[in-house]
Nucleic acid binder design. Structure first.
Ligand SMILES: [Mn+2]
Ligand SMILES: [Mn+2]
Ligand SMILES: [Mn+2]
Ligand SMILES: [Mn+2]
Lengths: 220, 220
DNA sequence: TTTTATTTTTAGACAAATCTAAATCACTAA
DNA sequence: TTAGTGATTTAGATTTGTCTAAAAATAAAA
């Protein structure tokens, strides 16, 4: 049985995200930027993760996450997202405050704890940012979703997730009145700068830059 | 502002308990036994805790916890006990399963988390083992309580806490039907071996050894 | 193809927390 | 009052995770 340390677990989760769930290859510098540690530290960690067979690592050529690695990462992600649900649903945190705390909580060891928490929360399928919560076997039911950018003029959809979960971005969304579950319609698209105007819940109109529109994911 | 590492926090909590809340002096071997680490490791840690002024440490003569140390220990204890309440009240853990998990949870950094948790739990005053939960300023309202041993024959009282919180002892109490809040009456005391017979809730009679009786605390 | 720039790894150091083995101190029992 | 025992500390090693500085490898440009 593979056991990971606290830090290895963190790296693996970051690698999973950078891998886009296992498709893309990932470089040392990618991981360094994501983890905010120096490339030298990353090299060392990659060697260890390679030895534990959770990634396939070739010196100077980056890494690929393995099936085993994916499974373990998904367990950590499951815990993280369940705690995020707990913090928002039960403790009334706002969605921009939960990530850091959930990161801490998700390192608590007990299996039973997570089972009971899941049950207590009513087996939620998505976290406060719209990201799917893997089940205890690591299965994750993805739903097709695309950035507002990719919608045609006049098309309608529903906001189901955000790509960027940084507090700054989430607070911006709060301010303009965008939220997970909101029904939207694309009212205008500006070719020149990629900005978009959408109508939320048939009531409120929001202008947003290309950058913002690219970070809001909708289901059509 | 004094900041303690994960391990220092654990040691300080153990020291607080061994100090009986600050009265008694504590030896290196005491701490070693409590923490299940070697005396050599303890010596090193005591030096560090001494440098941080959370204990007063004289080589070869043991230690005393300082006021500052008490405050910090009580913060950790507060977190620990609030999490224990959460696990029992909300996640349906039994009282013999919570200590280890609560130990992990109580190292999560966020202040806000603990405030919100406290609020969510309805500002509980006691944990599942009957121990008082310090408030955010470290104030702890103690109530007079004494071991069943010290009760006279025929006297009545109410179980308010246990001195030993080990799973083995707690499961024993479950088995014989003793619990926090139970009303008891001392029916018999045997001088010879210190064993006691009590009547629980005017219904169930329990025989217990001196050892057991000494670990059940009652309010008269 | 050769040079240059960028990325990545190695080497060496450090802090934290632990251990074992050896040395030292303090108390106690002759 | 001193020898011996037990408690405690020191010395030195190990693991984990991080860093800086320097070396090496790859990728890009000339
Ligand atoms: Mn998160
Ligand atoms: Mn999330
Ligand atoms: Mn406890
Ligand atoms: Mn307790």
């Amino acid at each position: 049985m593979i056991t990971l340390t606290f830090a290895e677990e963190n790296y693996l989760k970051a690698i999973y995200h950078l891998s886009d769930g296992g498709k893309k290859g990932v470089s040392t510098n990618d991981v360094s930027a994501e983890m905010k540690t120096k490339p030298a530290s990353v090299s060392d960690m990659l060697r260890k993760l390679g030895e534990k067979d959770v990634i396939e690592y070739r010196k100077y050529y980056g890494l690929h996450i393995t099936e085993e690695g994916k499974k373990l990462a998904l367990q950590t992600i499951r815990k993280h997202r369940l705690w995020e649900v707990f913090l928002v649903e039960k403790l009334k945190f706002s969605w921009d405050e939960v990530d850091e705390v959930a990161d801490d909580l998700s390192h608590v060891k007990s299996q039973v704890l997570i089972q009971r928490l899941d049950e207590y929360l009513g087996f939620p399928k998505f976290d406060p940012h719209g990201d799917p919560i893997p089940d205890e076997y690591g299965d994750v039911r993805t739903r097709p979703r695309l950035p507002i950018n990719d919608l045609d003029l006049g098309s309608i959809g529903q906001i189901v997730a955000v790509k960027d979960s940084s507090p700054a971005f989430l607070r911006y969304l709060d301010k303009v009145g965008a939220y997970i579950g909101a029904r939207i319609k694309v009212m205008d698209k500006t070719e020149f700068d990629g900005s978009v105007e959408i109508l939320v819940d048939n009531k409120k109109s929001i202008f947003m830059s290309k950058d913002v529109a690219g970070n809001i994911l909708v289901m059509v």
